[in-house]
Write a protein that binds this DNA or RNA. Sequence first.
DNA 1: TTTGTTATGTTATAATATAGCAATAAGGGT
DNA 2: ACCCTTATTGCTATATTATAACATAACAAA
Lengths: 165, 165
Amino acid sequence: MARAGSKAFPVPEHDHAACIGDAMAMAEDLCRENGLRFTRLRRQVFELVWTSHAPLGAYDLLAMLNERGQRAAPMTIYRALDFLMAHGLVHRLNSRNAYIGCNHPGDGHAGQFLICRDCGRVAEIEERRIAEAVRDGASRAGFDVRLPVIEIEGQCFDCRGARHG
Amino acid sequence: MARAGSKAFPVPEHDHAACIGDAMAMAEDLCRENGLRFTRLRRQVFELVWTSHAPLGAYDLLAMLNERGQRAAPMTIYRALDFLMAHGLVHRLNSRNAYIGCNHPGDGHAGQFLICRDCGRVAEIEERRIAEAVRDGASRAGFDVRLPVIEIEGQCFDCRGARHG
DNA sequence: TTTGTTATGTTATAATATAGCAATAAGGGT
DNA sequence: ACCCTTATTGCTATATTATAACATAACAAA
Ligand SMILES: [Zn+2]
Ligand SMILES: [Zn+2]
Ligand SMILES: [Zn+2]
Ligand SMILES: [Zn+2]
């Protein structure tokens, strides 16, 4: 039962400011190295997405942004999200119509998402064996994988503990 | 390269009336055996979903239904789809907001979907190795899998052939 | 028939996402 | 500095997908 070393789901009382800081730093780096314009708006949206480890909807983000005086329209958020997604800085969770920050970006990588149905938090993992199994299984049907979307609903370690020790 | 024996994606010129007939028969059986009411409306919607091997949107189905004189409202379709989904007769593809028929029903089974980005067709597979890899990978993060959603975008055998021999 | 339950009809509205065009800001060469 | 080009943002309207709430109808058991 891994856990101590696993960073997939951070413990509830962790230093979340550090999560945000790290993500921000990585995003800055990635944009600088690739000549991307990490504008004020994009920065703000990225920061908002990182408000929590649970995914946020586009209109949630919009409301949060507007509470900061920015009075933006939906398009504004969607465009910022498009940029961030295009460069792997955030991911969209199709099963929730919601967006989650990524802390190991890189254009167009497709990880696997663990979604806790109790606390709503999401962890992104990158298990080679899952990707391989998907590729092999698909190829047995003559199918060539381009973009696997894997969103796994279940229960995280902390929520399991909370229920039946 | 498997293909001959694979039924995941039927060949384009197959007898699709037989697909519909088989699916219908299985649905009838499942409902009879479980005391479910496979009403006229639900039957119609199920048949419409099976119109093609590409997934159809709720409003597409609604339009098709209304072309048959039924003048129904959105709720009507969504309720029929809810029933069909609850009993594994159709699946919702989150990445497309669309619905696809299932021909091996059973309450709440969760397969893996191959979605061709060229022809739009979808094949449902059930690869034990994928499910196992997901369960193992998740448990390494202390996560207990309840409902894996796996939607794999790529290119099917027929579309690959059509492009470069 | 009465009664409780499930299914459908109907109207309105919520939630999510995109189209289209004008205004502005950033970068690059002269 | 200037002009030019492109990328970004602002803004209004609209499309698409899904649900809420309540009334009526069909069904089945008592
Ligand atoms: Zn954190
Ligand atoms: Zn949890
Ligand atoms: Zn067919
Ligand atoms: Zn295809």
